[in-house]
């Protein structure tokens, strides 16, 4: 009986020792995370509105996946001259995924904006999300660009009716490449549209903006609409003359996007229309809308996914 008792004790001690040594090995393993470089661009609607920042990590048993371990979250620019507080609503576990042939766990930070100021416009071309933990550790994720406008929405002159996004796949990753929208001139005068933008690094390629006639469909392509391929990685070109919208008329327009070099995803965006009414310049902000919702880590895209490599602290 004594021998049995001693054996059990030895086996238990060995088991605990093995468990602790394995834990020690695990804690030194390389942690690997990926973020998504998006063109984040939002228009303030209410303090309840959220936006999401997805990220991927190869270990669920770290503080980086614990909402309660997070003490502060901010969005900063490269030189830290602008620090925007964002309030973490929740950290959601989404799913286990295979990414680049390795097992990962997909999470989603859900934020509300932590500041409010009338007519403020925030523009950060190279933005990072900085997550600070109770332990003092900081996780910095490259999230692309971050833009937020607090401008008022209403226009007494114009009304936007329909919004259809045109998308295209880049290595299987869907991204917005154009917009079809219909505008109503509610006034007794002609309105001249001089610019369309998204308060983003992505521009509307105004030289190609034209009226659109035909059925709107979520699977329309730029090539179908224009009858030729349009390079969305070009620089923005200006229109030769303003587009006229006659009094009390409703007209549909199509405009392709100009991304320049960076093809960061833009799945949700507002529309800002600048126009002339009776010779005066006006600006209309159309609230942002989510046009594409995709699995951000369904496939790897070199220019969209940013890797973060760090080591777990002992």
């Amino acid at each position: 009986m004594k021998i049995f008792g001693v054996s059990v004790a030895v086996i238990t001690i060995l088991g605990i020792g093995l468990f602790l040594s394995l834990r020690a090995v695990n804690s030194n393993e390389k942690l690997q995370a990926y973020s998504v470089r998006n063109n984040h661009t939002y228009a303030y609607t209410s303090e309840l509105e959220t936006f999401s920042v997805p990220f991927l990590i190869n270990d669920q048993e770290t503080i980086h996946t614990l909402e309660d371990a997070i003490v502060r979250t901010t969005i900063t620019c490269e030189d830290s001259e602008m620090i925007v507080p964002v309030d973490l609503e929740t950290l959601q576990f989404v799913e286990a995924v295979d990414f680049l042939n390795a097992p990962f766990y997909s999470y989603n930070f859900l934020f509300t904006i932590g500041v409010y100021a009338e007519d403020l416009i925030i523009n950060i071309d190279r933005a990072s999300l900085v997550v600070e933990y109770l332990s003092g550790e900081k996780l910095t994720l490259d999230i692309g660009s971050f833009h937020y406008t607090f401008e008022a929405f209403d226009s007494e002159h114009l009304s936007v009716h329909t919004r259809f996004n045109i998308h295209q796949h880049f290595d299987q990753y869907p991204n917005s490449v154009g917009l079809i929208f219909s505008l109503e001139n509610k006034t007794a005068s002609v309105i001249e549209i001089i610019d369309v933008n998204f308060n983003s690094n992505v521009a509307a390629n105004m030289a190609y903006m034209r009226t659109f006639e035909g059925d709107m469909d979520a699977f329309l392509t730029l090539e179908t609409v224009y009858g030729e391929a349009i390079d969305v990685q070009s620089e923005k070109s200006l229109q030769s003359s303003p587009i006229r919208l006659d009094s009390m008329m409703t007209c549909s327009y199509v405009v392709p996007f100009a991304y320049g070099d960076d093809l960061f995803a833009m799945h949700r965006y507002p529309i800002i229309i600048e126009y002339l009414f009776n010779g005066e310049k006006h600006r209309m902000v159309v609230d942002d809308f989510l046009f594409i919702r995709t699995k951000p880590f369904h496939v790897f895209h070199a220019s969209i996914h940013a890797e973060v490599v760090f080591y777990a602290e002992d």
């Binding site: 919004r163 979520a218 809308f289 995709t294």
Partner: peptide, 9 residues
């Protein structure tokens, strides 16, 4: 994998 949303009035 992906959903596409459009707004129509």
């Amino acid at each position: 994998t992906t959903e596409y949303f459009s707004v129509v009035k």
